[in-house]
Every structure is written in structure tokens, then in C-alpha cells.
Amino acid sequence: MDAKFIVLQLLNSISYGCVLFMIASGFSLIFGLMKITNMTHLVYFMIGSYVSYTVCVWSGSFLLGMIAAAAVTSLIGYIVFKGFLFRLRGEGQSQVLLCLGFLFILDDALLAIFGGYPKSTPTPEWLSGSIKFLDFTFPKYRLFLIVVGVLIAVALNLLINKTKYGALIRSGVDDAETVQAMGININHLFVVVYVGATFLAAIGGTLGGPFLSMEPKMSFTLLPIALAIVIIGGMGNLNGAFYGSLVVATIDNFCKVLAPSLSYFSIFLPMALILVFKPEGLFTRGTRKVKREKRGVLKR
């Protein structure tokens, strides 16, 4: 347990956190904007990684795999949203159950198509191997993940905070009804955000492919992790999702190394503490009452 070990594990955690962020950001934005707990999101991540795996193995090009994964997953997301979720808007509980239903269906379809053996996308050649710096050796691919993750986080942040669409999304998170009353087609915004989040999940799945060994049931192991991130970071909040993913990834990673028997349990302890002492989440914007209403702590 020396400094070197800690630094390496921290880097590992950050790269893992970057993958988690790509799931959690969309998950959190969808929840904040549409009040849908989109559990199907995790299966989009898995679809993304499986499609990219297939295309990667078939064509040998990582980039092509990413494009294919993003296209296929976005299409599935669009169909699920337009065909089913959209019709039930305003009925929170039914939407959750619908998402759960699609989680089961798509997850089982993955199992039927790809089988239960764990798979890993081959790492592209220019990213395989490791980098030596001082006396640290670190896989190139993980550094690449960190760079891409941070770039995507920055880009998303700019998109949300600096553009007109971002302003609409932010105001939609705060009060969708008023946005609609101002003459803005919020349904259009919903579709864009949902498909965009699905796209992001697919990219995350592609990037996570060489890094995690995927198996169909992974959507169920990732589900509570995504929930924990959203509960810790606050819902509908991009920065919260980013910090939340890093916190959860760090705790999870260190626990896996130091106390493997507690590895699943460990992320829930901070989650429970936050639920008790700060149920509105650590990074939510707004006054206390607004925050609590947003989180569903006070019933509107």
C-alpha cells in the first residue's frame, strides 16, 4: 500500500469513472428532464458494446464499430421512446415499469443472440500496450479513456451551459410546464435528449468494451451503480453525475482491490448516508425546498 499503488489505482478509478459517467450523465438528464427513471439505459450501454464488438471483430476497425453501435442503439432508443414511453408521459410509475420491461426484453435478447460467455472487444492497435512515465507503467487504453471521458464531459458541459439547447434543457429540468407555456415544443426536446443520451450510452459501451468483460446480465449489476451515482450526485445535474461517477468508481475500485468481499456493498454505504442526511443529493442546484421537490423528497 504505497504511493505508487494508490496513484495507479486512482488512475484506474478515473478511467472507470469516465465510462460510468457516459451512462450516468444520460440517465441523470433523462430523469431530471422527463422524470423517467430510464432503466433501459443500462441495456443501451450493453447493446452499444455488443454491436461494437461484433462490427470490430468483423471489420477490424474500432471507429466503424463505434459508429455502428451509436447508430443501432440510437435507433432502438428512438423506437422505444416514440413508440412506448412517449405515450405514457406524465405517469411516472408506468414509465418506470415500461423501462423495466424493456430492460428485461432487450437483456434477454442479448443473451439469446450473443450467448452467456464474457466477451471483450479487441483493443485497437494504436492504443494497445502501455506508457512508461517515471516508474509508472499504465495501459495506453486507460489513458485514452480518461482523455476521451474528460473531453466528453467538457463538451457536454459547454453544450448544457453555453448553447440555446442547453438553456432549454436546464429550464426543462427546473420547470417543464413553464417552458411549454413559453411556446417551446418540449416534446421535441424530450426526443432529442432521449436519443442523445442513448447515443452517449452507446459510445460509452463502445469505449468500455475492451475494458470491461461484457456479459448480458451486466445491465443488472450496473443498474444499482447508476442509481447510486444519481442519488449521490443529484438528479438532472451534469456536474453531479460527473463527480458522482468519480466518487463511486473510486470507492468501488479500491474496495475491489482491498476488500473484495465487500465490493458490492461498499457503494451503498455512502448512498445510504446521503439519503439520510442530504436526500436532495450532493450537487443539486437551487434552494433547499426546490431541491427536495426535484428529488421527489417532498411530494408536489
Binding site: 422524470k35 427513471t37 411516472g92 410509475q93 418506470v96 443498474l223 444499482p224 442509481l227 447510486a228 444519481v230 442519488i231 458490492y264 456493498f265 451503498f268 448512498m271 445510504a272 439519503l275 436526500p279 428529488r295 421527489g296 423528497v297 417532498l298 411530494k299
Partner: peptide, 17 residues
């Protein structure tokens, strides 16, 4: 302290423990 969908999610996470 949670209601609605949040309650569902917290409950799900707790059962996962």
C-alpha cells in the same frame, strides 16, 4: 423521505444490498 419514482429506485438499490 422519498416519494414516487425516487422511492422505487431507493428501494431497488437497498434490495440489491
Amino acid at each position: 423521505r422519498t416519494w414516487g419514482v425516487t422511492f422505487m429506485m431507493v428501494n431497488l438499490a437497498l434490495s440489491q444490498i
